[in-house]
């Protein structure tokens, strides 16, 4: 049983820079994940235009029939979103932790080029640890 199905990170122009699958049926291929990521980027922008009140910063939670999608946008426009089981709690906190990992292990990596796909070993290791811990915590709750 997987509480978290997948994680995406997209840069400020809608390009997918990181995608990790944690056991969803029918894993998406590279092309599909790129398409889905840029589609999410546009939907996020359109939802801001349709707001009835000023000051909207885009979709935070999308509740579908079989999954929940939690999205966090950093101040620089990088979007982190996680696909999880319906009703999973504490996903906002997890996204903030992932953002922290991103700033620590990706942005502070001197070999990382901004807006390019993330290939940092330390980020991968720490991310798996975090998600693993999150799963253990979810089972315990």
């Amino acid at each position: 049983m997987a509480a978290i199905y997948s994680l995406y990170i997209i840069n400020k122009s809608g390009g997918l820079i990181f995608y990790k699958d944690y056991g969803s049926a029918g894993r998406m291929d590279t092309n599909d994940s790129l398409r889905v990521a840029s589609l999410w980027h546009s939907m996020h922008a359109i939802s801001q235009q349709l707001s009835p009140v000023a000051g909207c910063s885009g979709i935070e939670l999308l509740e579908a029939d079989t999954f929940d999608l939690h999205c966090f946008q950093s101040l620089t426009g990088t979007k982190f979103f996680v696909v999880c089981e319906p009703g999973t709690q504490h996903m906002e906190a997890l996204l903030k932790v992932i953002y922290e990992l991103y700033t620590d292990y990706v942005l502070k990596n001197p070999f990382y080029e901004m807006e390019m796909p993330i290939r940092c070993e330390l980020f991968d290791i720490n991310l798996s640890l975090t998600v693993q811990n999150e799963r253990v915590a979810l089972l315990g709750r």
Partner: peptide
């Protein structure tokens, strides 16, 4: 609004993690 709903629906249909046999986006 209609465009947003239409596209979000195709997005969720493609993303569905419980179903392996989905068509294209």
């Amino acid at each position: 609004m209609f465009g947003l709903l239409f596209s979000l629906k195709s997005l969720t249909a493609k993303m569905d993690p419980t179903n392996a046999g989905k068509g294209n986006l």
